[in-house]
Design a protein around this nucleic acid. Structure first.
Lengths: 372, 372
DNA sequence: TGATCTCCCTTAACCGATTCCGTAAACATT
DNA sequence: AATGTTTACGGAATCGGTTAAGGGAGATCA
C-alpha cells in the first residue's frame, strides 16, 4: 500500500499528507487537523508534538482538499479591466496587502481592455467554485452578472466608483470634480476646456460620467459654459492626453486658459505636449488633473488626490467582513480626496485676482509665484 | 438524503455538482467527467445531452475537487517584489494574458518591498500545494528556496534578469547598458555621471549590477572613467531620480555633460528636476534611461527599450512547457532590446550639430554622427 | 459508590471531482 | 461461428482534508 508520500512519483502528489503526520505523531487525522488549525479540544502536549512532527515533515494542508471539505477556497478574485494603469495597480497593491495579511490568496483576472475577455472569464469559468468572493476594480457589472454571483453566494465589492446595487468604495468623483473646477474658477478662469475619459471597451465605468457631471455642474452653477469644441475625449493614457492637447490647439478659434483633465495621466500628457509646442503652463494654460499619480508631484501638477491603495485595503476589508459576518452587512463608502495645489494652475493672463486660494487643511498650500 | 444541491444552505456548497448532472442526464459521473472535458470514449449523442444538461444546470467543475483528484490546481503563482512599478505591472499584464489564454489562473503574491513578507509567504504557506508552478519577477531566490521548490516538484521561471541555476528570461542588461553608454560616448560625452538603482529590500536583484557593469566597462574600454562623486544611488523611482539630480548638482566641482540612468523612472525624475532648476536637457545635460516607460515617449526621453509584457508572456510559456513536457527542457533566454534615440541626448557643449533631431517614428534607428 | 460531566481523542461519513478497471455491445477478422 | 478489437459506459477507489457523533478515562458531585 504505497498510499502515502512516495515523493513526486506519480503526477502531482508530493509532500506529506495529514495522514503522514497523524501516523508519525501517533494520533488520528482529526486531531492533526484540529491541532494545526489551532482549534480547541487538543491537549497542549499533543498539540506541541503534532506541530513539531508537522514541522519536521514540512506538512502543509492541501488547499484543494480543505477547499473541498469546507467549501471555501480562501481565495478571492480580483477583476480588473487593466493592471497597467495607475489606479489599478495601486488598488491591487492595497488589496494584496490586506488579503495576504489575513491569510487569503489573490487570484487576478485582468481583462486587459479586451472586448470579449469579459464573457470568457465570467461565464462560469472563472468565478465559479474557484473563489470565495469577488472584488471588482472600477467596472460596473450587468444585473445578470450580479444575479449570478448572488445565486452562487459570492460576495462582491466594487473598488473605484459607485455601482448600482453593489457595495462599493471610491472617492466622491462628482465632488472631486467640482472642487477641481472651483479651483480653476476661483483663480479667475472662465475659458476652461474639458478633457474627459471615455473608455472604448465594454467596462462601463461610471466614474468618467461623474467627473464630467461635476465639471459641467460647477461651471453652469457659476454661470459659465463651455463651447462644445473644447470637449475632448481621451482614454486615460498619457498618449491620449497629448493627442487631446493637439486636437484642442489645432482647432481654429480662441484657446482656453485652463484645462480640466479627468485623470493625471491625461493631464500630464497634455502638459508635456503643451511644453513641447511652446505653450507655457501655467502662464498660458492652467492644467489640473485628478488622482495624484506618482509623477504628478515630480511634474508639479495640481490635482485632486485620491489613495487607491487605501481604497483597495478598505474594499478588501469590506469584502472579508461580508464573507465572515452576516451578509448584506456592509454598505458603500466614500474614500477621502483632497485638492493639492502645485505649479500647473495660476490665474489666467497673469492678472492676479488677489484672492487667497487656500486648500484648507493639510496639504501643499504653496502658491505659485507669478502673481506680480 | 439532501446530498445534492440544497442551494446555499450550509456554508459554502452551492451550485450543481457532477452528480447532479449525471443524475439529470441519466449517466454516471465518470461519463460526465469525460464528456465535459472533451475526452474520447463518449458517444456524440451522449456528450451532446450531457453538455446540454450541464449548461442548463450551470454546472462547473469544482476546482477544489478536481485539484484534489488530479494533484494539480491549474493555478500558477506569480511572485513580485512590487506591483506598482513599471516593469512589474507590465510583466504581470503579459503573464496574465498568456495564462488565461491557456486556462490557467494567476495567483499573485506581492511583497510590496517589505522585508519579512518574503519568509511569511515562502515558508510553505504560499507556494506549497496551492500552485502548479511559480513565476518570479526580478528576484533571485536563495538556493534553499530553489531546493524547496524542486523537492516539491514545482517548476520555476524567472522573468527579468538572469538568476543562477534558474531558467529565466530577460534582456541582456549588460549589453543594453553598454549600448546606452556607447550612445553617449559616440555623441562626444566624456563627463558622464551614473545613476544606478540599488534596492533597499531583500530582493537581490542581479539586474542593477549588470547595468552598472555595462556602463563602467564601456567607459573604461573607451579609455574614460568616472569620478566617484558622480556615482549616485537611487531606488528606481521618480522621486529618487529627482533627489539624485539634486545630489549631483549640489556637489561642488564640475558637472557632468551626460547622465546615464539605470531606469527610465529615475531618468525622468532627474530630467524633471533638471528642468525645474534651469538646467537644460539636452543642451546642458544629456540624459538616457533604460526601459521605454510609457512616459518616456511623451517626455522625449532617449532610452534602451525593452518589452516586459512580451517577457511575461514568454516566461509563462516557458513555465507551462516545463509543466507539461519533460522537465528541465526549457532553458534561459534573452529578450530583445533596442536603443531609441529621442530628444534628451545630444552632443555636449551646446554646440548645435545642425542636425535635424527627429524622433523618427517609433524606431529611431538614427545613429549619431560623431564616430570620427 | 455510582452517576454525571469534562476533556481529549478516534471513527467514519462526507466534500466533488478523476481514473483504473471491468463489462457489454458493436464491429472486424479469420 | 468463434475469436479478437474497439467503443461506450458504469462501479468504485482515491485524492486529503473537515467535522459530527461517539467513546473511554479521569475528575467532580451527590
Amino acid at each position: 500500500m504505497a498510499k502515502t508520500s512516495e515523493r513526486s512519483q506519480r503526477g502531482g502528489h508530493a509532500g506529506a499528507s495529514i495522514e503522514d503526520v497523524a501516523k508519525a505523531a501517533g494520533v488520528s487525522t482529526a486531531t492533526v487537523s484540529r491541532a494545526v488549525r489551532g482549534l480547541p479540544r487538543v491537549s497542549p502536549a499533543t498539540r506541541e508534538k503534532i506541530l513539531r512532527v508537522a514541522g519536521e515533515l514540512g506538512y502543509v494542508a492541501s488547499s484543494s482538499a480543505s477547499g473541498l471539505a469546507t467549501g471555501r477556497t480562501r481565495t478571492i478574485g480580483v477583476l480588473a479591466p487593466y493592471v497597467d494603469r495607475w489606479f489599478f495597480f495601486k488598488a491591487i497593491e492595497g488589496v494584496d496587502r490586506e488579503l495576504h495579511a489575513r491569510g487569503y490568496n489573490l487570484s487576478l483576472f485582468n481583462l486587459g481592455g479586451q472586448r470579449g475577455a469579459r464573457e470568457r472569464l465570467f461565464s462560469k469559468t472563472m468565478v465559479y467554485k474557484q473563489i470565495d468572493a469577488l472584488l471588482v476594480l472600477c467596472m460596473s457589472l450587468t444585473s445578470e452578472e450580479i444575479a449570478d454571483l448572488q445565486r452562487i453566494d459570492i460576495p462582491l465589492v466594487i473598488v473605484g466608483g459607485p455601482v448600482e446595487d453593489c457595495p462599493s468604495i471610491g472617492i466622491d468623483d462628482y465632488a472631486a470634480s467640482v472642487e477641481a473646477t472651483m479651483h480653476l474658477l476661483n483663480l479667475g478662469h472662465r475659458e476652461i476646456a474639458l478633457l474627459h475619459g471615455q473608455d472604448d471597451s465594454d467596462l462601463n465605468f461610471t466614474v468618467p460620467r461623474l467627473r464630467v457631471d461635476g465639471f459641467t455642474d460647477a461651471m453652469t452653477s457659476a454661470g459659465f459654459s463651455m463651447p462644445p469644441e473644447w470637449d475632448i475625449f481621451g482614454n486615460f493614457t498619457v498618449g491620449s492626453g497629448q493627442q487631446a492637447f493637439d486636437e484642442l490647439w489645432n482647432k481654429p478659434g480662441p484657446k482656453p486658459t485652463a484645462l480640466f483633465c479627468a485623470s493625471d495621466e491625461m493631464a500630464m500628457g497634455a502638459m508635456l505636449q503643451a511644453r513641447r509646442r511652446g505653450v507655457r503652463v501655467p502662464e498660458d494654460l492652467s492644467i489640473i488633473g485628478i488622482d495624484n499619480h506618482e509623477f504628478a508631484e515630480a511634474m508639479g501638477l495640481t490635482t485632486v488626490a485620491q489613495d487607491p491603495v487605501e481604497q483597495g485595503q478598505l474594499g478588501t476589508r469590506m469584502l472579508l467582513d461580508e464573507l465572515g459576518g452576516a451578509a448584506g452587512s456592509v454598505r458603500s463608502m466614500k474614500a477621502p480626496h483632497r485638492l493639492i495645489i502645485r505649479e500647473t494652475t495660476a490665474p489666467p493672463c497673469a492678472a492676479p485676482p488677489a484672492e487667497a486660494h487656500r486648500t484648507g487643511q493639510n496639504q501643499a498650500t504653496r502658491k505659485p509665484a507669478p502673481t506680480a
